[in-house]
């Protein structure tokens, strides 16, 4: 029997699917600017769901504030900063991929399937905001994030992959544990910010040396 959805749930579900779709588009993006754009879009979507949950939870001020902060930092500042990073590199450089787009998508599909299958088996839905889709979506986004980082051997692509992965977490946090105190949410945000800055330092160093953010050179340490 089909589960009866409430309006907020339907809204959140839709956004969740959008998040996933947007993330999947990373597989076919060929230039770094597209990656950054994808990330910005995802930030807005995450903010939207945060907002939605905040409204449903009885206009919880912390979630609403978090949504705003997300838009400010993730949706605006971080993409700007990254575009600044990219400016030094020729943006026409095509990002390499280990396998072709179709195969990547098939793999991603398989991972999403796995995520859904496993999360359905996990009896864990009391008090959650999205009873069926929450964990499945979060896990799917984490898995796909991993897959992007694995399949795109480029430093910036990997950073973006990590950030989208973290978006998945953010989504999970908001839907699975909407009560998680506000300060934690803010810390998560700040953390992402600092992490990106540090990533940025490293990427810059890499670019200075090799004039590109490819990480094929990162194969010296082995054994």
């Amino acid at each position: 029997m089909l589960h009866q959805l409430t309006v907020p749930e339907a809204f959140a579900g839709t956004i969740a699917m959008l998040l996933l779709l947007v993330q999947l588009s990373l597989f076919r993006s060929m230039v770094i600017a597209e990656f950054i754009r994808v990330y910005a879009i995802q930030a807005w979507l995450v903010a939207a769901i945060c907002f939605g949950v905040g409204v449903t939870e009885g206009w919880a001020w912390d979630l609403l504030l978090l949504a705003v902060l997300t838009i400010v930092f993730k949706g605006t500042l971080l993409p700007r900063y990254m575009q600044g990073l990219v400016r030094n590199i020729s943006s026409r450089v095509e990002l390499p991929a280990r396998i072709n787009v179709l195969a990547s998508l098939l793999l991603a599909g398989a991972l999403i399937g796995l995520a859904v299958l496993t999360s359905i088996q996990l009896p864990l839905h009391q008090g959650a905001f999205l009873p069926q889709a929450d964990l499945a979506t979060a896990l799917s986004m984490v898995f796909v994030g991993f897959l992007v980082a694995i399949l795109r051997p480029n430093a910036l692509a990997q950073v973006i992959a990590f950030l989208t992965l973290e978006d998945g977490l953010f989504f999970g946090t908001v839907t699975l544990a909407p009560g998680l105190p506000f300060i934690i949410g803010v810390l998560l945000l700040l953390d992402a910010l600092v992490a990106v800055v540090v990533f940025g330092v490293l990427v810059r160093a890499l670019v200075e040396r090799h004039d590109a953010a490819g990480i094929a050179v990162f194969q010296r340490l082995r054994g």
């Binding site: 984490v142 950073v159 990590f162 977490l169 544990a177 998680l180 998560l188 990162f218 340490l221």
Partner: peptide, 24 residues
């Protein structure tokens, strides 16, 4: 440093998921 921060961050992301599930 690159490997460290990327792998550790990705790993910690899963750790955060653990925290979230614990909260749930």
């Amino acid at each position: 440093a690159w490997k460290y921060i990327l792998i550790a961050s990705c790993g910690l992301a899963i750790g955060l998921l653990g925290v979230v599930v614990m909260y749930a």
